[in-house]
Write a protein that binds this DNA or RNA. Sequence first.
DNA 1: GATGAATGAGCGTTCATTCAT
DNA 2: TATGAATGAACGCTCATTCAT
Lengths: 215, 215, 215, 215
Amino acid sequence: MQSKNRPVGQKRASFIEEARRTQIIESAIETFSDLGYANTSLARVAERAGISKSVISYHFAGKTELMEQIVEQVYLDIAQFVLPRTEKETTATGALRANIRSVAEYMRDHRAQLLALGEIFNNLRTPEGERRYGVAFNEQVYEGREAIFRRGQQTGEFRAFDPRVMSVTVQSAIDGMFGYWVTYPEHDLEAHADELADLFEHATRAERPDEKANR
Amino acid sequence: MQSKNRPVGQKRASFIEEARRTQIIESAIETFSDLGYANTSLARVAERAGISKSVISYHFAGKTELMEQIVEQVYLDIAQFVLPRTEKETTATGALRANIRSVAEYMRDHRAQLLALGEIFNNLRTPEGERRYGVAFNEQVYEGREAIFRRGQQTGEFRAFDPRVMSVTVQSAIDGMFGYWVTYPEHDLEAHADELADLFEHATRAERPDEKANR
Amino acid sequence: MQSKNRPVGQKRASFIEEARRTQIIESAIETFSDLGYANTSLARVAERAGISKSVISYHFAGKTELMEQIVEQVYLDIAQFVLPRTEKETTATGALRANIRSVAEYMRDHRAQLLALGEIFNNLRTPEGERRYGVAFNEQVYEGREAIFRRGQQTGEFRAFDPRVMSVTVQSAIDGMFGYWVTYPEHDLEAHADELADLFEHATRAERPDEKANR
Amino acid sequence: MQSKNRPVGQKRASFIEEARRTQIIESAIETFSDLGYANTSLARVAERAGISKSVISYHFAGKTELMEQIVEQVYLDIAQFVLPRTEKETTATGALRANIRSVAEYMRDHRAQLLALGEIFNNLRTPEGERRYGVAFNEQVYEGREAIFRRGQQTGEFRAFDPRVMSVTVQSAIDGMFGYWVTYPEHDLEAHADELADLFEHATRAERPDEKANR
DNA sequence: GATGAATGAGCGTTCATTCAT
DNA sequence: TATGAATGAACGCTCATTCAT
């Protein structure tokens, strides 16, 4: 098994090894996406990849490692897409809007990856029975978005609100947008994202003094 | 087998029959909630109920019917709790706030039920592989909430926005609140619900004329 | 699974349950005896019993429990046969001779049982890798025989020797007799047992005073 | 593959070839000794040797040949150690004592080898299901020891007894000593060997005329 | 000489379901 | 009304071996 404990100083995984792992991961993503977590077996993944199922065992320590690799890979991929687009914005409002829109843009071309991620996210558990991933795994994402909110509150761009609740809500709204689009593929993802951006712009922006006074 | 297509004229399910079904459903809810979808087998449910597992097969046509009964029952229960609290509000804003708060209140005392519902919702598939429930199953809920939004928009209470997106987002925000609270049980659910109500109040309310003009 | 955690007060295992367990154990004994430890799979045992292999899983918690049951059952059976025949002897020499001869007699009619016992004894390991049974499991047998030797030494019937070494050696000699007979089935088991009895009689009996003096 | 049927005139196995085979055999011995027959796979042996598992397949025709090589090598090693020490004795009693003691001495420094030997001895089977080694494989050892006994009986040093039974019993006693020491490593191996020598000296020596008469 | 890659066979186990009682 | 007994299918995984490089 090349995937772990590779001796120090040894050449990195061979080309063929990397290609197989990639191929298997892609087949697994499709399988999770199409059949769902409970119906995804190594046999089905192998079938889709056109290989013997023991090939999977050869390249991955087990089903768990395969799933963890999927999560890791998809997560990195999303971050690489979304972060630059978010960070180049100067205003907090702009950053939030860019964040939502770029995630939506990513979704459009990575439906299967995000579906697979969700299946694993929602279902994979440790041997002890606790969720392997879970809301807690989003902590990093929450904190990143919280930073935007705090910044906006300090600059006076945003009203007073609980940044954590807002952050959790934005994430939920994005997840909900994805789920809705998956169910209704003809749904206009871009328009939905814009609506969400408007929604959170209104939800976060500073209130006019006289408004505040009237509350 | 007795659960469906009961011949016309036959007495309704006996007391003992109903008691057994209830007991099994409750054990199943606990099991789904504790162990997750993939680790919930009829054997485990039976073990928790302290009965033989073929008793389950006797009272339910199969695992699928058991899960469908859970969904139906929990759904009804939520609706019975939430709808009256929502409908007694007169303003759209009030209705939305009451909606969010009452769901949160329900959550607090029905953690296991909602967890089990989520497990089944996210994972149960038809024999053909499509999701048995899914976003589409929420259609009723969406429409109910959309009605509130449209009313608010007609009365001028709300600004112009896409009622469907807003409805999906409210639902997502509520689901996200639940997931967050499940992960962090010490999290203040009531405060979160109030924050959400504020959030959507800001997100929906009509803009002042001069604001609109400035955009 | 009836085999464990039977609720208190519940009727003991049903007749059919006991019959199945017995049948499976017997098939397993034959399989271990014929094919050896490494070639004995639940599939092979089931095949020999003419049942589906999942029946074994139904009646036993696992392969390990099946093997432990074999050991327990065969052990009890031997003890029930040998102990009475040994204990009715009055002299230590007589007890030793009766012990050896009765074991040999038992062997003759329980070849497969003892072979299976040996396979499991020599190979079964705990999940941590240590032998499940081993020499230490013979402790009881050793102690029983040591008691005979000590008694003989106190009465002056036996010479001075290390009772533990003698006990271990008697057991080894019996095991060796069995192994030899298994390999050469025409070998005269009874004569071998008598030779062993003579051997240990000479090896244990008290030396005459002048012999001792001359050493 | 190189190990057998090397074409005539070809140089003997290269140094590196021999070194690899030796390394693999040693790792295999450790693995059999530590993990037991059933848990010893080529993968585990390779892991311990720090080599790829197909290296084993390259140097040995298969797992079976590897095991046979272990048996052959350990057997030769024991014989080289024990035989000279036994043969230099002039009396039959002395030879027996030397035999037992030298085996015990060998054990002390070759625990793993003897354990591995035992694992293979007890478990390796032909494709037809018969034991590959077994009591019959000891024939040579038995005959060697029988020669000692017959000699002693001819010189009048030993009493009348069945030399084959005595030979089998001596071997069993030695095996038993090893097994006991493996379980209780603090057990005094040398003292045990001396006790055994005494035991068999008493068991074999000629009886005094009056003793015989009294029986 | 050496090995990474692949494979089919078989393993023990869990599963939802059926059926006779 | 209840359940013990049974089962075939499928599961994730390990195995010794083969083969191209």
